[in-house]
């Protein structure tokens, strides 16, 4: 078990390093960074001065290690556009994105898993059809449209929750629903498919022949096996929800990290983009790592082989 976690952890570190190299190389992939900073009307001498000042004239490896060392300490340099330290900029917004992502995921899981389980117990029943309808809707309806409709109904017409902002927890309700509903269909369908598969397996028959209670058969024997692929899927979805919440964030005017990423890309604000890429990838890596650990705990075949 410990050895397995250590292995997983080391490969996670390796992936993180690879990502850091890629995000660092963005600086050189886009254009000459010195020319970009100096601006359109700068003379050759000016550009050289900028190059010296920012240290772009040194070997790339040296620059990378300097950048990485600073990044590990939380120093991503200064934003070209905001003229503020990137870390300050991201830190504020990240908490908004984290709150939104986590609540969205909790919302998605708490609906998708029970619904998937119920649908699998009675396939093709009314409730299964309803779950299918919900998930097809979730896949078909674009987030921004759902967001706007929810705002029209619940904020403008009914006035129950604020339409935008981050002032109170109520402001998170609608974005959570929109973001969670985006993640729900896949999780629901995978839970249902997994449960259907497991419920027709030989060991469930054995459990029934033992005279175990329905609850024990369903939750102890079936769900644990069915949930294993769902855990991996949820980890990937979680990564998407943190990095890919841009649409939801802009509809509800939540100034989170996703929104910042969109802003920085449109303004070519390289240090901020680099930092965001690194941080979002780290989230992916961390969640995949956590999912691996959870799966190893769930499925002994993974840790004992």
């Amino acid at each position: 078990m410990f050895v397995y976690i250590l292995k997983r952890f080391s490969s996670a570190i390796l992936v993180a390093l690879t990502v850091s190299i890629i995000s660092f190389s963005l600086l050189y992939l886009s254009s000459d960074p010195a020319a970009a900073i100096a601006g359109e009307n700068a003379s050759g001498a000016d550009i050289e001065a900028v190059r010296k000042f920012y240290g772009f004239d040194r070997p790339i490896a040296v620059q990378y290690f300097e950048w990485l060392t600073k990044a590990i300490q939380g120093d991503f340099g200064e934003s070209y556009y905001f003229k503020l330290p990137v870390s300050d900029l991201i830190f504020d917004r990240l908490s908004i994105t984290m709150k939104l992502g986590l609540s969205g995921m909790i919302f998605a899981l708490s609906f998708a898993i029970p619904l998937g389980v119920i649908a699998s117990i009675q396939p093709n029943s009314l409730i299964d059809r309803f779950a299918l309808f919900l998930s097809v809707m979730g896949q078909a309806v674009p987030s921004f449209w759902l967001g706007l409709i929810l705002i029209v109904v619940f904020s403008i017409n009914l006035g129950w929750v604020p339409a935008s902002g981050t002032d109170s927890f109520q402001s998170y309700i609608l974005p959570t629903i929109v973001l969670g509903y985006y993640a729900m269909p896949a999780i629901m369908r995978l839970t249902r498919a997994g449960m259907l598969d497991v419920l027709s397996s030989d060991y469930i028959r054995t459990a029934r022949a033992k005279g175990l209670s329905k609850r024990s058969i369903l939750f102890k024997h079936a769900l644990r096996n069915a949930i294993i692929p769902v855990v991996s899927l949820a980890a990937v979805q979680m990564g998407f929800m943190l990095g890919g919440a841009i649409v939801t964030e802009s509809v509800f005017a939540l100034h989170g990290a996703g929104y910042l990423a969109w802003e920085s890309i449109s303004r070519n604000d390289l240090p901020t983009i680099q930092a965001l890429i690194l941080i979002f990838s780290l989230f992916f890596i961390v969640f995949t790592f956590l999912a691996d650990i959870l799966n190893v705990w769930l499925d002994p075949r993974m840790r004992l082989n």
Partner: peptide
């Protein structure tokens, strides 16, 4: 009837490789 299963009457199946739950000891 469930009370009888596994207690007074029990069954052994054909395929031993899949008849036990892989997640439990």
């Amino acid at each position: 009837r469930n009370g009888l299963l596994g207690d007074k009457m029990s069954m052994i199946f054909q395929e031993p490789m899949t008849a036990l739950n892989p997640c439990y000891t």
